[in-house]
């Protein structure tokens, strides 16, 4: 018995050691990011690791020097787009997945198959065409265009929420119908209140998309710096012409948006796991 105890405490020590080293390796780049954001010397590369002088200047300049890179404006742009996208696409996703999960109608199977096939094309294969469609609508380089693009395909993101709606027992609907409810009230007043986790998950996912995407923005906005979102703006700071001057500011800007996103992420990790494993394991 004693031997086993000794062995298990040894193996636990080894595990603590491995976890500790891994944790350091995993956090190191992030610690580096925070450190650089306080560095006074400019430039992407320095022949030394620790900054010589620390300063808050990078954060201040982010909000004061706005002629070329208008960080506050980008922040508001992104917030606006994120809120609108979130509102529109949450409703679209929930309606689509509810319909495909719980309503029975003739073309249901066909629609499910079409959704499946559409999901197999690489997402940005069609982005050039999307750009010209927006241009034909007279919307290119505007924030509205961005909202339309982010929420336009929302109906295709039904997979996870549909898996959730599938698990709610059908007898609830039947009872409600006996009580005289129509299908619309069943959705809003019975199923939705029961589906809080998936509603929150959908809201968070659609809210976060505009903060992290830079591909579609770069196609749609081209050189209209004023309508950039945070992601594309920060990406611009690292181009060859800008990197020397703006690298430390990039780090400061990145820290500022990483904080809220990290908090959101930690909140939603539970829903994330439920959503993904629910869909994946059940198939």
């Amino acid at each position: 018995m004693k031997r086993i105890n000794w062995r298990s405490s040894l193996s636990n020590t080894v595990i603590y050691l491995i976890l500790g080293v891994m944790a350091i390796l995993w956090l190191l780049p992030i610690a580096w990011l925070v450190m650089i954001s306080f560095r006074a010397e400019p430039g992407a590369w320095t022949p030394y690791i620790l900054p010589k002088t620390l300063t808050l200047d990078n954060y201040i300049r982010l909000f004061s020097e706005t002629q070329l890179f208008n960080y506050p404006r980008w922040f508001l742009n992104t917030l606006f787009v994120a809120l609108m996208t979130c509102a529109i696409s949450t409703i679209l996703v929930l309606m689509t997945s509810y319909t495909l999960s719980r309503l029975r109608f003739r073309s249901r199977k066909g629609l499910l198959n079409v959704g499946l096939i559409l999901g197999m094309f690489p997402g940005f294969m069609a982005m050039i065409a999307v750009y010209y469609i927006l241009k034909a609508m007279g919307l290119s380089q505007t924030l509205i265009a961005l909202i339309l693009v982010y929420s336009g395909g929302a109906g295709l993101g039904y997979y996870i929420a549909k898996g959730f709606f599938d698990t709610i027992p059908r007898s609830l609907d039947e009872a409600a119908i006996v009580d005289g409810a129509n299908q619309n009230t069943i959705f809003w007043e019975i199923i939705l209140p029961l589906s809080k986790p998936i509603v929150i998950y959908t809201i968070l996912v659609s809210f976060m998309a505009p903060w992290v995407d830079f591909i579609f923005v770069s196609i749609i906005m081209k050189d209209n710096y004023n309508n950039y979102t945070i992601a594309l703006g920060l990406y611009q700071m690292l181009t060859r012409e800008n990197i020397y001057r703006y690298f430390t500011q990039f780090c400061a800007g990145a820290v500022l948006i990483a904080i809220p996103i990290t908090i959101l992420y930690i909140i939603m990790q539970k829903f994330y796991v439920e959503g993904v494993t629910g869909g994946a394991v059940k198939g």
Partner: peptide, 11 residues
Amino acid sequence: FVVTIAVPQFV
């Protein structure tokens, strides 16, 4: 470990 994936990938 979750913190590292929470930081947006482009950063």
